[in-house]
């Protein structure tokens, strides 16, 4: 049952809806440290070392925001988890200590000669979240930098430098009623210091956090393997807790993504979650199911869930 604790279950209604479901967060925190910290950081660093071109991209324009984010996240780690992290800043001299990993980073704020990596790349190796900088330019939002190890079937290399709207144009129905324009306007109006959170879900047919488009041929084929019998083991509900934060100093937007996985066998232990998950999968419009990659095995998945709901009813 421990896997259920703290899992950000995303469904609030018994029917699939697509909306700008962002809520303001108070206190305004951009990141979360969980029990998986060490394991995930090990994986993040391994991916960055082996596939740096795939996991980190930046445009020169993003450098000031990168510095601001580095300070922000080191500060937040230390102030929210003082037993695990320490951060001191005296003038420009900074010292960050990561007691969980027994490491420290000493650097001078805004002096690139004092760090070996770009600031976003460096701070990204101390948090579980993927980090994206959306530059707020006078003609819209643009993806100007990112450290992305755990994407859900997209490619950072492809979307770098792209407009917010174009990045999302593959999401079915997103152009309806100017929806994407509204979301962009909403983001461009977020006030300095405010954090907005939304949960986005999908399904992965393995327990892998790193499912980039670049390795689709490796993990995508498992979608064919789902049966009514093995669904509980193979299928994982994947939830991205996404937070948007307006950087006070540089006026760009920091987008953090914390990815959580829950195996279906664990999920069905909670009756209300089982029911809600079932209803949402069942009412999912076909084009969304296709987009989320669920179409191939939706029948098997629904049958698996129905069997368990039936068992639950008989058990009572």
């Amino acid at each position: 049952m421990s896997r259920l604790n703290g899992f950000p279950f995303p469904f609030t209604k018994d029917q699939y809806t697509y909306s700008n479901n962002s809520v303001p967060l108070d206190p305004a925190k951009t990141i979360t440290v969980t029990a998986d910290y060490k394991n995930e950081l090990e994986l993040i660093r391994k991916l960055l070392q082996k596939h740096h071109q795939r996991c980190f991209r930046s445009l020169p324009l993003s450098i000031e925001s990168q510095w601001e984010i580095m300070l922000l996240l080191f500060n937040e780690l230390a102030s929210c988890n003082p037993e695990s992290f320490t951060f001191q800043k005296m003038g420009g001299e900074c010292l960050f200590q990561n007691h969980l990993l027994a490491e420290e980073e000493a650097f001078v704020f805004r002096d690139v000669s004092t760090i070996d990596l770009e600031p976003l790349d460096l701070v990204g190796r101390h948090v579980q979240e993927d980090l994206i900088i959306m530059g707020d330019r006078h003609d819209g939002l643009f993806l100007e930098a990112g450290q992305l190890c755990f994407p859900s079937n997209w490619s950072l290399a492809f979307v770098q430098g792209m407009e917010f709207k174009s990045i999302h144009n593959q999401v079915p129905g997103i152009q309806n009623d100017g929806f994407i324009d509204k979301v962009e306007r909403f983001i461009s109006k977020i006030q300095p210091g405010a954090v907005w959170e939304r949960k986005n879900w999908s399904i992965t047919v393995t327990n892998k956090l790193d499912t980039p488009l670049e390795t689709y041929s490796v993990w995508g084929k498992h979608r064919q393997e789902v049966t009514c019998e093995n669904a509980g083991d193979l299928i994982h509900l994947r939830v991205e807790v996404q937070r948007l934060f307006r950087l006070p100093m540089n006026h760009d937007v920091l987008f953090t993504i914390h990815t959580y996985l829950l195996q279906l066998n664990d999920l069905i232990q909670q009756e209300s979650w089982l029911k809600s998950f079932y209803q949402n999968i069942k009412t999912l419009p076909e084009e969304i199911a296709e987009y989320k990659g669920i179409s191939t095995y939706r029948t098997e998945l629904l049958r698996f869930l129905e069997n368990h709901m039936e068992k639950g009813r008989r058990g009572r």
């Binding site: 809806t17 909306s19 700008n20 479901n21 962002s22 809520v23 303001p24 509204k182 306007r185 909403f186 109006k189 977020i190």
Partner: peptide
């Protein structure tokens, strides 16, 4: 009517006005 922020910033709860005067308090 769908809604999210309840603060006049996200635009989710918008409706069309057929007639009448409105005191707009949103920032969207």
């Amino acid at each position: 009517v769908p809604y999210t922020c309840r603060m006049g910033v996200c635009g989710t709860c918008e409706v069309g006005i057929e007639e009448g005067d409105v005191l707009h308090c949103d920032s969207f």
